[in-house]
Amino acid sequence: MSLLYAVFVAPFVDMATAPAFFVEVLLGGVFAGLMYSLVALGFVLIFKASGVFNFAQGVMVLFAALTLVGLMERGAPVPVALVLTVAVMVALAFAIERLVLRPLVNQEHIILFMATIGLNFFLEGFGEMLWGANVKRLDIGVPDESFQVAGVLVNKLELSAAITAALLVAVLAVFFQRTRIGRALRAVADDHEAALSIGIPLKTIWVIVWAVAGIVAIAAGVMWGAKSGVQFSLSLLALKALPVLILGGFESVPGAILGGLIIGVGEKLGEVYWGPLVGGAIENWFAYVLALAFLLFRPQGLFGEKIIERV
């Protein structure tokens, strides 16, 4: 009986009796969720355009952040370092299309997936060789301080990360819906062969989409790097994006955002209010439980395309 009370009643009593803290937990979840979405977006973009699950997206986040901070350490002003990092990520997209994707055109998706695993290890080792393994501080000019609003503590860095994520999503949404390239990307995502038949260049589209994923990786790397320092565990962020993708669907930009928010808020609520019942540290796997539970009802994810197959 007391267990039932602890699981089904006590947490809600707690939320009601300390509403300011509850709001703080929610806000913490929203901020964390948007940060997860930033990482998940990179996966979605590439999956949308090529059907490839890019195992190397987490390492791309790391590589982008390492490049940026490496250039800054060598005296490049922030804007210059940022432009150069964008250039590096675009060059990387070209190289990936030419050396990895093009030779594998028409191969099974699993082959392409395996190729991205190889890319993952190459980029990790190459990044380490190029920029070293030390933890690097990334100062983006936003003080890591907190302020109070009606008893709720808000962190300036997290707030700015959330705003950046929101802006990036808005820009991507406009890019996909309103531009020619965006429409071409969606056409390729819908049907490669049909897109090719009306003259959409598949290779160019792949370069563009990998370049955009690279730029998204820079944004994710900057935000996470400012939070924890730029270091090799940034590549493990991919693990945080997976439940977001399961929940939001692999092909949907809004899905990545909403999925991120649900996962972020869900794991924070779970850890703070239910975690102590089992000794804590449920945050990581609770996110997957949430995502898997969701799959029971919508196997294609929140905004994923419904799978209809003729039998």
């Binding site: 913490g28 964390a32 794991e267 924070k268 703070v272 540290a281 945050e283």
Partner: peptide, 17 residues
């Protein structure tokens, strides 16, 4: 006792507590 799961990149819930 507050446990943090590996690798510990995100500790928001821990620090809320």
């Amino acid at each position: 006792l507050l446990a943090v799961d590996h690798p510990g990149q995100e500790q928001g819930a821990t620090w809320l507590q």
